[in-house]
Design a protein around this nucleic acid. Structure first.
Lengths: 335, 335
DNA sequence: CGTTTTCCGGAAAGCGTTTGCCAGGACCCT
DNA sequence: AGGGTCCTGGCAAACGCTTTCCGGAAAACG
């Protein structure tokens, strides 16, 4: 029996194969424990069934949740999901993208916001262009300077709600802990806060704005430093949940009771935030759904099927226990 | 200029190429932004430069650290490291392994302990045998029933030291929180504890042994349940650090001061454990090194180069603040 | 200057699939 | 019974690269 026939059986080709023959083929495959060579398959013009997912940090639950969402859609569709963690290193990111091109990945999803490093965007664009030219589908799931289809969480509305909430509780002086300045996500969230505050005639004290990393520890240190320096604020808004968790820990160490002495907020609504003490008030980013939609967008583009892709996903405020009315406690800094 | 020549330039073949020609080729490559097709490369008998790493849960820092160690060696060697997280699902694990076979990965590293599920080991063995037969190198980094080269952390010695330490502090009644029963790692660690305790004539109260997951939350719940049930113990030993972290949180919630009222220990020495309050007494598993050694073993096997592979890595006790002398505090259960 | 050696580039086979094309046989119809 | 249709299955090209084998040119030698 010929090679071609086997291939047709394997791919349920529309070319008819006699049921008996098909059965014989399948039996032989089982007997020999045969596994088709994915390389050869990919080579001969077909798809590779590989999807590259470029994230900033796979340790971070934010990315992890999104990857899970992607996987929920990708796996049933037969895709192998490769998670590529750049740890926010542009070189590494570019290297991964090249590699995906080389492997002829059918699609690439960029999950983290673009790294705003001089020259990097252009080099990345060249690669992405090449990938698209070779039939791959590229999708972005965060604000990015690359002109490709993207779905982004619309945190602005949620941040506005959050500010509304805090102001309603009587807060007027805020501290803000931001992520790295070269991260578009961070920059945009910060801008959203500033403009929402501005609508209430509130301006941020520059001393109360700390731009550091997006990580827990960095936030904890930042808060401690602010308090040490005697900067006054009744609420600290963090640009992601990880940092808020760090603030909660730092606050406890500083003897500040949350929310009595200090209100703390995050953004993302990571799975852990519900379990914290107190549970975190935050802006919910629909991470799983973001991942699913992203993958659906990739699939639709590969199949050249139209897809009603939303370009943004609503993010709503989730009020929990880490925010409270101002002025009921001692002022921060006093222990 | 011919295809063959280009190939020789790309691979620094030992077949001589005139420097001028080589330069022309390189220039053309740059100009056209050419990227060789990894599929075709792999197909034509060469290596694919792909390494599959099968872990239980990429969210877990334990695996993450090991993967980083692997990466430290793999990247310089030109390997693309694919992290495959089975979430302890045998089907998924098997599927990933098949997929790696299909992709002709040069090597596979199994990081988590074997999943002890009926039939699973055999199916896995068939796949691994096939992969080895096709030239791939398979390595295990945890206790496993598969007869392939492995490097395992020798936690037994560290656990013995730990028990020594606790007994020395006056502890006689223990609680033990284990991982899933079908996980070899968990079973072995539990056995090590039992035998070390037995050497001191101490037997574990069956009621004080809870076998749950390897996760933080599960451990927290388990500890709370034990205390509720009035089970008596002065120290709780957890079979990994994640669980110990959960215990620390639960203890705080229960009003138990660590180590005054209760001593808590883990195993692994995750990066976070130093930062906890109190910092955790644990058994250090050299995760980064384990990863590096594992990858080196893969490389040596691929190059058929002899390698003095240690089969076990020493794990030593690290004493920090979560263990203390018994009897100085109130008895647990009293609030 | 002829011969041997060395150096370098080209031609072609092969890697394991997919797929378009073709042909043999079964079947149907007149 | 003969010719036309289907239904199947085989053949072979193509995918993009590596690598072996060859041959021509240049260099070295007597």
């Amino acid at each position: 029996m010929s090679i071609g026939t086997v291939s047709r059986v394997l791919n349920n080709s529309d070319h008819p194969v006699h049921p008996a023959t098909r059965e014989r083929v399948l039996a032989a495959i089982r007997a020999l424990d045969f596994e088709p060579n994915a390389l050869a398959r990919g080579l001969s013009g077909r798809r590779t069934q590989i999807l590259g997912v470029v994230v900033h940090d796979i340790t971070d639950d934010y990315f992890n949740e999104i990857v899970r969402g992607i996987d929920e859609v990708a796996r049933p569709a037969g895709y192998l999901v490769l998670v590529l963690s750049s740890y926010r290193d542009p070189e590494l990111e570019l290297d991964y993208v090249r590699r995906m091109r080389s492997q002829h990945a059918d699609g690439i999803i960029f999950v983290g916001g673009g790294l705003q490093v001089p020259g990097h965007v252009d080099r990345l664009r060249r690669q992405v262009e090449a990938i698209e030219a070779e039939g791959g589908a590229v999708v972005m799931l965060a604000p990015n300077d690359l002109p490709w289809p993207s779905i982004v969480p619309d945190t602005d509305a949620g941040i506005a709600e959050l500010v509304e909430h805090l102001v309603g509780l009587g807060h007027r002086s805020f501290a803000m802990l931001t992520g790295p300045d070269h991260l578009k996500t961070s920059v945009e969230r910060a801008a959203a806060f500033r403009s929402a505050l501005a609508r209430h005639g509130i301006a941020l004290d520059p001393r109360a704005v700390v731009s550091g990393g997006f990580e827990r520890l960095q936030a904890a240190e930042a808060l401690e430093r602010l308090v040490e320096q005697g900067v006054r604020f009744t609420a600290v808004v963090c640009l992601n949940d990880q940092m808020a968790v760090g603030c909660l820990q730092a606050a406890r160490r500083l003897g500040l009771r949350v929310p009595r002495d200090l209100s703390v907020t995050g953004i993302d609504d990571l799975p852990v935030t519900e379990l914290l003490d107190p549970p975190l008030t935050t802006v919910r980013v629909p991470m799983r759904e973001l991942g699913r939609r992203g993958m659906e967008l990739v699939l639709s583009r590969l199949e050249e099927r139209p897809f009603e892709a939303p370009t943004a996903l609503a993010c709503e405020l989730v009020v929990r226990g880490s925010t409270g009315r101002v002025g009921r406690g001692s002022r921060k800094g006093e222990r």
